[in-house]
Design a protein around this nucleic acid. Structure first.
Lengths: 219, 219
DNA sequence: CTAATGATCTTAACACCGTTAAGATAGAGA
DNA sequence: TCTCTATCTTAACGGTGTTAAGATCATTAG
């Protein structure tokens, strides 16, 4: 009775993810992750919905559960890739700088740049309650990104590992707080390119203030 | 039209909870705000729902709309009180300290203490998309809290207003980032009293690292 | 080649959510 | 008294995440 039109997409159009053989997707996981990242980019962390992600991937709202369990599972996968991208950005930023202080400044700029370029993804990466916080791979990705940071800080701070930890926490807190406050508009609306430039210029001064080239730069 | 939030009842009466003369509440706004703060305290920023707030206040889901327009309106009111409480905490923390640096440290501790004590409320205060971001009273409350901060920083940084602004942004970024990272568990789970103590101890070291008593404290 | 099996996806339903429209009730003023 | 306005309720709408049950595919066992 209900078979003739029961074929996959009721509108007759093939789903975005190719289905040369029936209605199987083949790469649903990747499609869902890509869709989620697109939603985060377009509507921010609060704009994400699982159903919309499924919609964009061309599947039913229940399909994602077979691959990710629930929305948290999918978002965790997105967050993992986010941390990997962040770690890569931090690594790239530190390369080719002459000294430790320049590397730290470059990483700070890269961190905020990352946050302002991908606000939704960034916010989601730190929305613990929307992720599987104790996921093994997520924890590893976070740790890897953190190490990328500590590596540079260690050169500056020297001393005991504990002192390095403090210095890293200080640097991370500062750039993270700056990024968060900037995203919430506390440093002026950074919507257009001009506002964004202004924010980055302010960040340079903040970094120069807290990690000066030498004592004279403070005054 | 609507609105104007006509506050206060002409003939002072009607005890809270539910009037004995039918179904009028008398102080619904306060009841809704209190309920919202309770929800934020119990279930965090993501756990808030307008319907639950109405439920706790003993009214229908549609009742809040007459007083706050929508959920954003109610949460904005909650955020305003949050910023007022934060400003008070910062003011109180700075009082009775011998010098500018001690005042700054005390405010930093108070800021993070505030965040860890009222996580849900704190997160909501910075969840711009869930508030009426351009609300006049909200902006004023934010500015007031910020001024409480700048006032102390100005003593330390001295120099031009611009330099003071940079120094204030640096201090705010650091404590805000530290608070956010702590709330997201990046510095260890701060659920119990022990973890929380550890976090605060780490904060003291971070503050000492970035704003040392004198040059020798860095090394 | 066929049959069975397990992975994948759909349909349908559930309980919630925020918001709105329309109507009932209360209190205050004419 | 009658009317007006603010307040609150009921009922509905479209949206959400999640689940159970069934259909379909891809692969492998016989």
């Amino acid at each position: 009775m209900k078979k003739a039109i029961a074929r996959g997409n009721p509108k007759g159009m093939a789903p975005p993810g190719r289905s040369d053989t029936g209605y199987h997707h083949g790469e649903l996981q990747e499609a869902l992750i890509a869709a989620s990242e697109a939603i985060l980019a377009e509507h921010g962390a609060d704009g994400f919905t699982l159903r919309e992600a499924a919609r964009r991937a061309g599947v039913s709202p229940a399909a994602p559960s077979h691959h990710f369990g629930n929305a948290q599972g999918l978002l965790t996968e997105v967050a993992i890739r986010g941390y990997e991208a962040l770690a890569a950005a931090l690594l790239q930023a530190a390369s080719g700088k002459r000294n430790a202080r320049d590397r730290l400044h470059a990483q700070g700029l890269a961190y905020v740049e990352f946050a302002l370029t991908h606000p939704g993804r960034f916010q989601m990466m730190f929305a613990n309650k929307r992720l599987v916080a104790d996921d093994e791979r997520l924890r590893a990705a976070i740790k890897a990104a953190g190490r990328e940071f500590e590596r540079v800080v260690a050169e500056l701070a020297g001393g005991t590992p504990k002192q390095t930890g403090i210095a890293a926490a200080a640097a991370w807190s500062t750039v993270h707080g700056f990024a968060k406050l900037a995203l919430e508009g506390k440093f002026g609306a950074g919507n257009d390119e001009a506002g964004r430039r202004e924010i980055m210029r302010m960040l340079v001064q903040v970094l120069n203030h807290l990690w000066p080239r030498d004592a004279r730069d403070v005054a």
